[in-house]
Amino acid sequence: MRRNVPLFICLIAAVTLAGVSSLIYEVLWIRQLGFALGSTAVATSIMLTAFLGGLAIGSMIMGKYADALVNPFSSLVVVEILAAMTGLASIPALAYAGRAYVLITTATGLTGFWAMILRSLFALIIMAIPAIMFGMTFPLATVIGTRLIGGQTAAGTVSAASSFGSAIGALVCGLWLEPTIGIFASAQVAAILNLCAAFLVAIAGFCFRRRTESTNSRILHGK
């Protein structure tokens, strides 16, 4: 297990980057939702519900399969790439949703409770999809970490890396990215971080497979 430590560090770096990215998106969604659908307490709660709900759903879905996956590395690579794509798309999608919401409410005369439901649906659908991807990261990374260095240390370290990444994401986005380069450019940075995470996991997966294959080969040839 000790020789897998560099690969585990690679994984932890990827989880941290994914944590940074997810909190950048959370901060940006709060802003974008305020612009597109209003800054009411209901709107903010919808955002938080979509974000956290997406994380929970993603975690539950992947939790069912993660332990049985032959190659969780490639699954995590795919999840990170999808997170980059859906996360980046969510920013203009929210702006379009705002416009669609205005068109529908003005055409149908929808107001009050039903207008709020419509607003919520738009926001939930758009934000929940990338949030589900973020949620899938956690169980996959825990399983990979367990295969690399063993369960107890892996689970806690993945959790710590994810939290530290989230802290960095909230600070970097709130204090520097969004004020300096705006919402969409910040989302592009977040997407790049997801792709970097995918790249790191891919490298770790490649090295792990090579190492496993060579070990198996040595065992097979009785060396």
Partner: peptide, 10 residues
């Protein structure tokens, strides 16, 4: 561990 961590997280 994947299943349990996912359940706890969720």
């Amino acid at each position: 561990i994947g299943s349990l961590s996912a359940k706890l997280y969720a």
